[in-house]
């Protein structure tokens, strides 16, 4: 995933970014800021430029993260991933028209964002301003408490929070019997995902499982409805007198 983001940003060597090396991490951060994000003026980037002086650089980096409003992320990989996503987003917003042909109609983040906005607004009946800073902070805090990963759109994050609460914490979920049966190993199934990119394989399998889960819920609802109707209409009859075995 990192590689894809680096490629999208036009990084000169997207294949060779070694995450284990702090120095290389530092130079990648500097490259992104220099080339793409440009949050600071050139003079203000001085501290970040001190790649060979770790104490100085770390200090600059701490401030940089805070200035970017980066959520608290633990690993170096998560941080880099977040910063790269941020950069990609800025790049996109610079000239959305350029990408219009790819995703003008169904750009997923945009349409999802709009949907989420409408959904949340309708729930709160317009009484709460969902863009209010206090609201945003509240969502972010809730998400941190429940270990929901960060998303730039806090409303989508709120949806994820709602899902976790519904699935795990609601009274109905607490009283639910654990699902019995033989577990199906989802990584050894008959389905081929993408043979050439293992980084895509796992997330795709997980997304497909989620899709299957929601389909199953839908189908169960359908079956329940059919059974409810059957209770009224069903009247199976047989009449053995009618039967005739042929020759």
């Amino acid at each position: 995933m990192l590689k894809l983001k680096l490629e999208a940003l036009g990084h000169p060597t997207p294949n060779d970014v070694a995450l284990s090396n702090r120095k290389e991490f530092a130079s990648t951060i500097l490259w992104v800021e220099d080339q793409k994000i440009r949050l600071y003026t050139i003079e203000d980037r001085e501290k970040l430029r001190n790649i060979d002086n770790p104490t100085m650089w770390e200090e600059g980096y701490m401030k940089y993260c805070a200035d970017l409003n980066m959520p608290p992320l633990e690993t170096q990989q998560e941080q880099l991933s977040w910063i790269l996503s941020h950069a990609v987003r800025l790049e996109f917003l610079d000239d959305p028209a350029q990408f219009a042909s790819i995703n003008s109609k169904q750009d997923p983040t945009q349409s999802n964002g709009k949907q989420a906005h409408q959904k949340v607004q309708s729930i709160f009946d317009g009484k709460i301003n969902v863009q209010d800073k206090a609201f945003v902070d509240g969502v972010r805090l809730l998400a941190t408490k429940l270990d929901v990963p960060h998303h730039p759109n806090h409303l989508l994050q709120l949806e994820a929070v709602a899902r976790v609460v519904h699935e795990r914490l609601s009274p109905a979920a607490k009283g639910r019997q654990p699902i019995l049966g033989t577990p199906f190993p989802f990584d050894t199934g008959n389905d081929v995902v993408s043979s050439n990119d293992p980084a895509l394989d796992l997330p795709m399998r997980i997304l497909r499982l989620l899709q299957i889960q929601s389909l199953r819920q839908l189908q169960t609802h359908i079956n329940e409805t059919i059974v409810a109707v059957q209770n009224i209409t069903a009247n199976p009859k047989t009449d053995t007198k009618l039967g005739k075995v042929g020759f």
Binding site: T233, A234, N235, L242, G243, G246, F247
Partner: peptide, 28 residues
Amino acid sequence: GSKGIIPMNARDLEEALEMGMDWSLREG
């Protein structure tokens, strides 16, 4: 030339032809 033991009239057949298994479901 065998004949079935589920009683059906012409109207049932018309419905069954249109509805397929939904007919079997409806009738239980």
